[in-house]
Design a protein around this nucleic acid. Structure first.
Lengths: 230, 230
DNA sequence: ATACTTAGTGTAGTATATACACCATGAAGC
DNA sequence: GCTTCATGGTGTATATACTACACTAAGTAT
């Protein structure tokens, strides 16, 4: 049993939420995961990023995983999440004081095989240059998430969280180009990325593509290392 | 008047706090601001970083400024604060569920002229290699703050938040060396930092120091720019 | 005038970044 | 089986940046 609380009721004014800005890349475009917002005062007119309240026995990390998977439809084992920023503006939710711990989520498109992970009534992948009107401050949260993603991509190996297990060097180059929105020189990119030593060549090639087969690579481990690549 | 809340009482389990890990540098050492923790279950046995609960009409940023100034004793106009990380472990406070939005604070030692800003009974500057036993998860918060400071110092100009208005190139070099804990080559440092263009030479020198006078510089603006220096 | 202390500077060697074009190889069509 | 097509894969020359390193300059104190 708990002791009587030393914190007066009027300081328990806020509700805590965990929201996830999840990105994936396909068709050479960055996409973000959006769900319809059913709650008042929006009643499905608007979209938002997946998220929800913390339970009393949950950390923000745990709540982020729970809401990203249940509401966002992306399987836990496919998803990388890291804390992004905490949004605490007084009226960010018009109904209540809600403080949101936002998370940056990344998931490789290729692993999203289950129907619920692609586009359904409950959740869709939307091009970041085609965002609809969004509820709350979710446009701002997405902006901060994208900014963080682009920044981290240039000095860490976080991009591995967007790549499938096996990929060609062109796949990886295109991923960098898509996330950063800029072209990269093919020869210089290959020299640089191979010199970092984060990739392992596989004894296999990707064939069947009406051109010369490409060697397949994988990242040596799942951790994000602080290495400048671009 | 507020509408009746759509959020059940049992989801208002948490209290929100804003804590500030404030750093300054003097005597060639990094110091962090600590205050005695009077509350149960610690009763002044332990120290902690300044912080406190959010008021219902406050953002986390505002609460961080308020507690850093009132409890930490550092004047608002001397203090730089940026959001660091949100700590939400279930039992981080043994009395209550408290979710803390932690802030990284920086302040130049030279501006701390008021008594309350130096060492008092209410707050002291403690060498980061001589930390006492700390309440809650404050050692972890300080660790994360220091890690963030060192990381930001290498690819932004955040170090300007630790420098007085006017300084010599040696002052700046020593600041980098102190924060990063490593020596820097004097000639290479000067070439690099002057080439970035973030500094302005002043038409003045620092004299009276029983050696050749040093030119004084200042940062061109207060914003933090993403520039690699070390 | 001398001693002391930090300020201020340059260069050579190495490593890294950039710009840029052609041959290799499998698939598909004839 | 020859040709076409499309992407895979490679090297070099130039410019820029990084590193290591030692001496003179100038004010203060005696």
């Amino acid at each position: 049993m708990k002791h009587s609380s030393p914190v007066p009721h009027e300081l328990r004014f806020a509700v805590l939420a965990a929201d996830a800005v999840m990105f994936t890349v396909f068709d050479g475009r960055l996409h973000v995961r959006l769900i319809p917002v059913h709650l008042p005062p929006y009643f499905s007119h608007l979209a938002g990023i997946p998220g929800g309240l913390l339970a009393p026995t949950e950390t923000a990390d745990q709540a982020a995983v729970r809401h990203a998977t249940t509401k966002g439809g992306v399987l836990h084992e496919h998803l990388y999440l890291e804390q992004l920023y905490t949004f605490s503006a007084i009226n960010r939710d018009p109904r209540n004081r809600v403080v949101a711990v936002a998370y940056l989520g990344l998931v490789p498109w290729e692993v999203l095989t289950k129907t619920a992970e692609r586009d359904t009534a409950a959740a869709t992948w939307v091009r970041i240059d085609k965002l609809p009107k969004l509820a709350y401050d979710h446009r701002e949260i997405i902006r901060v998430g994208l900014e963080r993603l682009r920044s981290r991509v240039t000095y860490t190996t976080i991009i591995k969280q967007l790549m499938p297990k096996e990929f060609t060097l062109t796949d990886l180059e295109v991923m960098y180009e898509t996330v950063l929105g800029q072209d990269i020189d093919k020869r210089n990119f290959r020299k640089k990325v191979l010199k970092t030593g984060v990739l392992q060549v596989l004894p296999r090639e990707r064939t069947g593509e009406q051109h010369r087969p490409a060697k397949l690579y994988r990242f040596l481990n799942r951790d994000i290392e602080p290495i400048a690549i671009i």
